[in-house]
Design a protein around this nucleic acid. Sequence first.
DNA 1: TTGTACGCGTTATCAA
DNA 2: TTGATAACGCGTACAA
Lengths: 339, 339
Amino acid sequence: MAKIDDVAKLANVSKGTVSNVFGRKRPVSKEVRERVLQAAKQLNYTPNHIARSLTTKQTMIIGLKIPYSKHLTLSSFQQNLISGVVTEASLYNYRVLIDTLAQDSVELPYLTTDPIDGVIILDPKREDERIALLHELNTPFVVIGKPQNSNVENVSFVNNNNEEIAFEVCDFLIQQGHEKILFLNAPECVTVSHDRKRGFLRAFHKNRLPCSERDNVFKKDMLEDPGTYGYEATLTYLVDQEYTAVIADTDKVALGILRALKELGKAVPDDVSVIAFSDDPVLSQGIDPPLTAVDLFASKLGSEAVKLLFSIMTKQDEVEQSVIVRAKLNVRKSSAVRK
Amino acid sequence: MAKIDDVAKLANVSKGTVSNVFGRKRPVSKEVRERVLQAAKQLNYTPNHIARSLTTKQTMIIGLKIPYSKHLTLSSFQQNLISGVVTEASLYNYRVLIDTLAQDSVELPYLTTDPIDGVIILDPKREDERIALLHELNTPFVVIGKPQNSNVENVSFVNNNNEEIAFEVCDFLIQQGHEKILFLNAPECVTVSHDRKRGFLRAFHKNRLPCSERDNVFKKDMLEDPGTYGYEATLTYLVDQEYTAVIADTDKVALGILRALKELGKAVPDDVSVIAFSDDPVLSQGIDPPLTAVDLFASKLGSEAVKLLFSIMTKQDEVEQSVIVRAKLNVRKSSAVRK
DNA sequence: TTGTACGCGTTATCAA
DNA sequence: TTGATAACGCGTACAA
């Protein structure tokens, strides 16, 4: 690998000049630039990222921390979100370091700082250690979801209007005549699940309908297979109970629900309405019947997080900022007026 | 941010000793180690990744180059592949840098080497410039797909048995009585599409059936929306022609096909059989009718690529190696014996 | 265990 | 303005 000195020597200039040709920090005469670029090409030289980063303290990389267990594939929500982050970051000439190594599980010889200029954090927990640490280290970061750290102020985040949209979905079903509705919610450890539950329950209160805590079911954990979750929960709760509608945490959960309902001999939407929190329009529309679903705009959550992160990285003042990505209910054929 | 000198001073030892405590390169007496760790904790010190990388020439990061245009979301194949790469890499204590910035499009002030120890390349083209460059730079790399660079020897890769599986799918349909089969293939620029086309055509030859080049359609480019591709191609080719079966490049293409067939008043599988190259079992099984599909094991392609990459990064001898991930045809309900 | 040269650029300072 | 020189960033590794 050629280095800057080699190029300088070949082009008959100093290191500094070569640096200025590539770094564009100071103007270099056209003549000299040509000579340097020529030499660089000949030697196949490209500035060394590590060495540059060491002095500039910029890596042109942002991190994306996805808490996730080995041997588990990423959900379509996470995957779409990655897509949004990667795409948006590329507009800033930044790349994305996917980090699934949990901070605290890194063994000593591998423990280092992250070679990044900023971070996006997913699936915040209550009193999330990652948030506390980033705050200590003064690393710019943005949370996707709802941060809940009591000791850390000024946490910027991007989130859906979870309570609102859950309220809207549930209210929509109630307006259609449904009174017994089952909510197969996200895992309890994820902060958004509580917001959704609140919106869900509020819709019953507003309409002066009775509802039980039991109508809200939390997914066991992040590990449980979503299809199985929907399938088994449906078989469990829709046999005796008189539920006429089910709200699913994700579209894959909805697929499990549909499969189970078919086995139970219940028609969709005639016997049971199904609505999902989804993020894959192709999937929703491809299912038969096309799925009434809430689009969370995962990709937009990702791109907005990147924008917010860069506004933080750029400015000095650490003002808390937040962006709410409004989810949207797309009514299709899997839900209908209760008969 | 505290640095190594601060810790050394506070613990009353030299830089080197602190380095050895964190780097585990040489043994340090328990007593001293405790003192150093204590001091580090107090100062909130973590070794600087950049500085360490500069001397060790290891970043503990592997790159994943995904050629991809702005504002396009990643396909489920790509997303699952990322998932496999990230998961496997974490077993080696490595992280993954997602790189969608095309080498040649990077403007001067941003041009640097990649801070990585090895790379995985997706969607290789013929005479792929990235491959040529990596070879020049002597960077360990693995291709996912079929490398076709005439000037570069010893390219290791991971691939599906594309020709074989395309043959198998087509032959399967022919055995079921189909004689006019449409193949909505991947874009021509991607090397795998040609292998699949070859297998597709070979099945006709083996069965002594006539077939036309026109029965193989290439996707316009990587940009075209897969759902639209399937939808429009179906409307175009299945109106006059007497095709009784369609093979789709991806499951999303298949969804477009199903939508179009419904509009044309053709039943699946009674009038037309549909088979897709897919990688999402939940999706395939969720569609009605459940999709007969080829699982490409995208996630496994990713994890195998990582394993291969590490075997290259570890060894001195650059022996070409390749791994073939055998795709599998899962027969479900969208295909049937021709009536 | 300590001292120190080194890795590879960037940048501030000085000179022309 | 442009070019050259030298100090610097932060660890690692080898000689002492």
